[in-house]
Design a protein around this nucleic acid. Structure first.
Lengths: 100, 100
DNA sequence: TTTAAATGTTTAAGTTCTTGAACATATAAA
DNA sequence: TTTATATGTTCAAGAACTTAAACATTTAAA
């Protein structure tokens, strides 16, 4: 396995962690339906509290899976999955080339 | 987002969890270098104890990311990443089609 | 400037994950 | 059958994650 493969595996860990939670997947799926949405709008669609949603949004934000557009006091969240998708595609391509 | 996308996201959760741990990634990377390997051989390459390695191997086994060939008292582990790679490729393709 | 609304952060409790010691099981050789 | 080797499982301790209440911050309107 190449050194590049190791780097891709390591770089994917925080993405895997972010995407391995159903609450965070729900946020992504919700945004895919209708974006952008505010924190309150997202929390209203969820059984979780607003602070819990805010917590999960921070995890998604830290991994740049969502982006924010501020409008007054509100923050409109929308998806920004392109970079993560490209990373995971690179990982899968490397795995296919070296591990199958 | 289609219902199929939701199913792919949900089905990917245990794969994401299995792959989001550096100890388990180390096992995969080790097997990619030289497979098959026994539990003891894997544990000898690691700082973790044999029971810890056995625990992580069970998680990889549960997700069918590794396969076993029994020879006497020894179990030789090798990679079986094809199915998981195909699942993740489907997920990424769906995300690209519906979320970018 | 004061007030209200939207959001983020801190904190504490409950839960889950990770680890290794101790124990159990299974296979093969003596 | 007894013994030794390889592996899996149970369990308890510690670490990390998830959640919601309470508090803090920021922005805009009154």
């Amino acid at each position: 396995m190449s050194e590049k493969a190791v780097e891709l595996f390591r770089a994917s860990i925080p993405i895997f962690q972010a995407l391995s939670d159903s609450a965070r997947q729900d946020i992504i799926l919700l945004l895919a339906e209708k974006e952008p949405l505010t924190v309150n709008e997202i929390a209203n669609e969820s059984t979780l509290s607003r602070p819990a949603i805010s917590h999960h949004l921070k995890i998604l934000r830290d991994q740049k899976l969502v982006q924010i557009e501020q409008k007054g006091t509100q923050r409109y969240y929308s998806l920004a999955l392109n970079e993560a998708v490209e990373l995971l595609k690179s990982l899968l391509a490397t795995v296919e080339a070296e591990c199958l």
